[in-house]
């Protein structure tokens, strides 16, 4: 395998193994790493992974994930787990929007290793719901790359009670 693929594919292999072994039910990359699937490369220090866990309602939802990773030599590093070159943050789905984003995620791959990613429209609307400047920058980048449209974002925002946030964003950044 080419040397330049030896980093993120390690994360991909771990995630797929976690699903196979029942530690998580599903996963999808989101945040900056997912954004890069649709836009040009962006600088990011970590990889954000949306996960669904088998035991719903458990308070320490991340404990099985941390234990599984530790058993494979991947240790915690602050809020993340160091997987090779990447600090990986596992984010359990926490609302209807992230649940839907996970369910509708795309099947991508890193040089043949499967890696699921949140789609561009859900990336944008998740960004809208969080509302930091970098989230707005992400939405603009996704629109500029034509990986999603204002109409799609508007429709999805309405479905998740984010119409007001979308209207504010549109007035601020898109209206001439």
């Amino acid at each position: 395998m080419p040397a330049y693929h030896r980093f993120m594919d390690e994360v991909a292999k771990l995630l797929n193994a976690m699903v196979e072994d029942g530690v998580i039910s599903a996963y999808a990359v989101f945040g900056a790493v997912a954004q890069m699937r649709y836009t040009e490369a962006v600088v990011t220090l970590d990889a954000d992974i949306l996960v669904a866990v088998p035991e719903i309602g458990r308070l320490d939802v991340l404990t099985p994930i941390y234990e599984y990773c530790a058993s494979r030599g991947f240790k915690p590093e602050g809020e993340a787990i160091r997987v090779g070159a990447w600090p990986v943050q596992f984010i359990p789905v926490f609302d209807a929007l992230t649940q839907a984003a996970l369910q509708r995620s795309d099947a991508g791959d890193i040089d043949g290793v499967p890696l699921r990613a949140v789609t561009a429209d859900y990336l944008a609307v998740i960004g809208l719901s969080v509302g930091r400047p970098k989230d707005f920058a992400r939405i603009l980048a996704l629109l500029e790359a034509e990986s999603t449209s204002a109409q799609d974002i508007e429709t999805l925002s309405a479905a998740h009670g984010l119409t007001a946030q979308w209207e504010r964003f549109r007035r601020r950044f898109l209206d001439a």
Binding site: Y4, F7, M8, A32, V33, T44, D111, A117
Partner: peptide, 14 residues
């Protein structure tokens, strides 16, 4: 640059 593969763009970020 946008047309590069996902893997290539990730490597750029790395």
């Amino acid at each position: 640059r946008r047309e590069l593969s996902w893997a290539a763009k990730i490597r750029q970020a790395e």
